[in-house]
Design a protein around this nucleic acid. Structure first.
Length: 439
RNA sequence: CGGAGUGUGGCUCAGUCUGGUAGAGCACUGCGUUCGGGACGCAGGGGUCGCAGGUUCGAAUCCUGCCACUCCGACCA
């Protein structure tokens, strides 16, 4: 992409309403625009990142055996009356009436709908287990939206729902998602720690929140430093095998949010030098809640004995849009965002320090073509801007690699390759620089 | 939902107390000089001062009502 043709409305000054660093940087980098309280338009740069994150979530869900579908944003109120949650949800639920006076709601989650879909088709234990997920926009009419997309009213979420014949099988499904989440967040460059959690209004007795450690996070967390060094399950993990060892390994080390923190247990289990009290952002949550929805909604299957019983369910959420902000909270500096390569909107930016100079143009075009062919998604800053502005923009928007092409270097047959994260600069020939970038 | 604020050009803000022809910086347009870490000069364009009433010769400014947004708390993927 040539920057001269892209839509990147960066701001030099920080809009007054933004309090936390990710919100400020997302506005300054031209990633989002607020349309109403807690409702944002995703501008091209932000949308690219959102899509990258969504795709990683999707790949890891698929790998773990979950099946993607897509449910609508609008749901019938009657469906929620079946589970009894229509009234429980209160003002957070956005209620809508259509022209026929039919009561609808903009879905804040999809337990009811997926249960309705499931019960319509599945009758036998032979059809189990199943894990269905979708990635869809949700709406919760928060009393007080804040922190940009971190706590918006409209948000993109991946939610998966598992269906099993009994509790043991249900726990296996839970473990599969637990492991998938470890992999998902690690791929985005995040340290996300599963922490024992309260089950909240959704109910059930087994739940973990996945918390990204970030000084600017909303919740206070307490954990054993050893949890940071646990290995992430590899790509070759067999999701059909018994995963309880991995789950046990992670959940045996103390890690709790403020809500369920027990100081006495913490002091007993964690050596003073290993105690880590910091802040974190919840980016995912896994629940096993048994028959909470299947029982009232009559989602039953016949077992091997011919007796019908409610299916055992779990639900597994990932805040996809929130993750954009969480990654920034965890990875930025005074100059701007530092994208991990896996979610960067572009792989590398080519900074032409003197557009119009024949030699510089030639080198940039050569690099642009080669990097495009190599699938590195280059962003070519071909604007007629001063060098300082280009450096500042590239840093602000977090480009992981900057290929700097200026007349002085080109005269010596050299370009510079800068790593955003470390700040390291190497002076190389153009072919060597391209080779270093995999082109 | 309790409490506290703020609405003035695309952005950051001054002006409001004490009513008298709407300002600055950034951004934008043109010209010139600059040109490896957000340059400089000159000349321009752009605002029903959140909305609706009211007071007044005259309202961004005073009064009333409404709306939106933000912050603190409670709540929350």
């Amino acid at each position: 992409m040539r920057l001269s043709r892209f839509f990147l409305p960066v701001l030099k000054e920080t809009p007054a309403e933004a309090q936390i660093v990710s919100h400020r940087l997302m506005l300054r980098a031209g990633m989002i625009r607020q349309e109403a309280a807690g409702i944002y338009a995703w501008l091209p740069l932000g949308f690219k990142v959102l899509k990258k994150i969504e795709q990683i979530v999707r790949e890891e869900q698929d790998r773990a055996g979950a099946i993607e579908l897509l449910m609508p944003t609008l749901q019938l109120a009657d469906l929620w009356r079946e589970s009894g949650r229509y009234d429980d949800y209160g003002q957070e639920m956005l209620r809508i009436t259509d022209r026929h006076e039919r009561e609808l709601l903009y879905g804040p989650t999809n337990e009811e709908m997926i249960t309705e879909i499931f019960r319509s088709y599945v009758r036998s234990y032979k059809d189990l287990p199943k894990n269905l997920y979708h990635i869809q926009w949700k709406f919760r009419d928060e009393q007080r939206p804040r922190f940009g997309v971190m706590r918006g009213r409209e948000f993109l979420m991946k939610d998966a729902y598992s269906f099993d014949v009994d509790e043991a099988a249900g726990r296996h499904s839970y473990n599969q998602m637990f492991v998938a989440y470890l992999r998902t967040f690690a791929r985005m460059g995040l340290k996300a720690i599963p922490m024992r959690a309260e089950t909240g209004p959704i109910g059930g007795d087994l739940s973990h929140e996945l918390i990204v450690l970030a000084e600017t996070g909303e919740s206070v967390v307490y954990c054993d430093k050893n949890v940071l060094d646990l290995p992430i399950p590899g790509e070759d993990t067999d999701y059909q095998s018994d995963l309880s060892g991995i789950v046990e390994q992670w959940s045996s080390i103390y890690a709790c949010t403020e809500d369920v923190h027990e100081q006495a247990r913490y002091e007993a289990e964690v050596k003073p030098e290993n105690r880590l009290e910091t802040r974190g952002i919840e980016v995912g949550q896994v629940f096993f809640f048994g028959d909470k929805y299947s029982k009232p909604m009559k989602a039953v299957v016949a077992g091997p004995d011919g007796v019908e019983r409610p299916v055992q369910m779990g639900s597994y959420g990932v805040g996809v849009s929130r993750l954009v902000a969480a990654i920034i909270e965890a990875s930025h500096d005074d100059n701007g965002i530092i994208w991990p390569e896996s979610v960067a909107p572009f792989g590398v930016t080519i900074l032409s320090l003197k557009p119009g100079d024949a030699e510089v143009d030639l080198a940039c075009e050569t690099a642009y073509e080669a990097l495009t062919k190599a699938g590195r998604e280059p962003l070519y800053d071909d604007r007629d801007e001063r060098a300082g502005g280009k450096f500042a923009t590239a840093d602000l928007i977090g480009m992981p690699w900057q290929l700097i092409v200026g007349p002085k270097g080109i005269a010596n047959g050299e370009v510079e390759l800068k790593n955003r994260k470390t700040g390291d600069r190497q002076t190389l020939s153009l072919p060597d620089a391209l080779k270093a970038l995999g082109a």
